[in-house]
Amino acid sequence: MTDRIRIYLKTGGIVFSKEASEIKTILGSCVSVCLWDFKYKAGGMNHFIFPTWTGRGLATPKYGNVAMEFLYEKMISNGSKPEDLIAKVFGGGKIFASLDISLNPGRQNILSAKKFLEKVNIPVIAEDTGGTRGRTVIFHTDTGDVFVKKN
């Protein structure tokens, strides 16, 4: 069994690891994107709550557009080439069923992630998004495998 560094990714955080790591997070309407470099066998993951930073408060990675940019930049500055990256997208559940579709933060979060990935030409090769349940997501950065369990 690979001896992986175990990291708990909290809301609004970003993790990038060159060493074999197991990154775990728990999602509701939040979205996490796992970026994996299949050449270097290294990866990173974010966990954001809101789709877009609108200029209020600090531009932290709790906003989708900031979190995606940060994660992508971290991968690139550590030597990854954009063409060697693949993405897996998780979360964005509609936890409060009564919410109007236009106010569904989960859906907006998924769109924010996909919009960025499309812009930088990174393919989404797997996803488990939407629905009405939360998820536990565990990412093995050395193999690119992601384990998802509906809570």
């Binding site: 175990r6 708990y8 197991e22 775990k24 897996k88 797997a126 996803e127 488990d128 536990t136 565990i138 495998d145 992601v146 384990f147 998802v148 369990k149 509906k150």
Partner: peptide, 18 residues
């Protein structure tokens, strides 16, 4: 909690691999 879920992955209980 994380230890418990690491064990779950080993047994494959409730998790799907993507």
């Amino acid at each position: 909690k994380s230890q418990g879920e690491a064990d779950d992955i080993e047994s494959g209980e409730g998790f799907i691999i993507l």
